[in-house]
């Protein structure tokens, strides 16, 4: 084995990730090469430092609190879903009621029908436009997140 072949294998040796034959090959070289053996000692020193520290953790009680917060959010999601379905159904019902009682009623003036009709069309266009914008920005966001 030559020095230029050693490189990242030293890390793998340190982590016990080499097969026994790879390990023997590498150790044979490291034992006789001062450059690679110095590099291995440096890696070991870093490993030694890293083994003395760890990342901060949260107490179990904090996790329980966070879980109950998350649980409430999950539950509320179902609430929002049902409320959303209810509102949609009501709107559809209201629309047909309005159509039936108002637009098909000859007693209501044509001008009023027209203004309400135009207002309705305007609102529908605004609704479609904003939801399309939201959908597009969300799709862009997802695409950005997928980039590794």
């Amino acid at each position: 084995m030559r020095c230029h072949e050693v490189g990242e294998l030293l890390s793998a040796l340190l982590d016990g990730e080499l097969s026994s034959s790879e390990e023997q090959d590498l150790l044979r070289h490291v034992q006789v090469c001062p450059v690679c053996s110095q590099e291995f000692r440096d890696l070991q020193r870093l490993e030694d430092m890293m083994s003395k520290v760890c990342l901060p953790d949260l107490p179990d009680a904090a996790w329980e609190e966070h879980w109950s917060c998350l649980y409430n959010k999950l539950e509320r999601r179902i609430g929002y879903l049902f409320a959303g379905i209810g509102i949609t159904l009501l709107l559809i019902y209201g629309f047909f009621e309005l159509l039936h009682m108002w637009f098909l009623n000859p007693a209501v003036s044509l001008l009023l029908k027209m203004s309400i009709g135009i207002l309705g069309v305007g609102l529908i266009i605004l609704c479609i436009s904003t939801s399309r914008e939201k959908l597009l920005s969300r799709r862009y966001d997802r695409y950005k997140e997928l980039v590794r």
Partner: peptide
């Protein structure tokens, strides 16, 4: 900085 803690049972310096 990453806030690190002392690992329990590590040889103390």
């Amino acid at each position: 900085a990453v806030e690190l803690q002392e690992r329990h049972g590590s040889a103390s310096d």
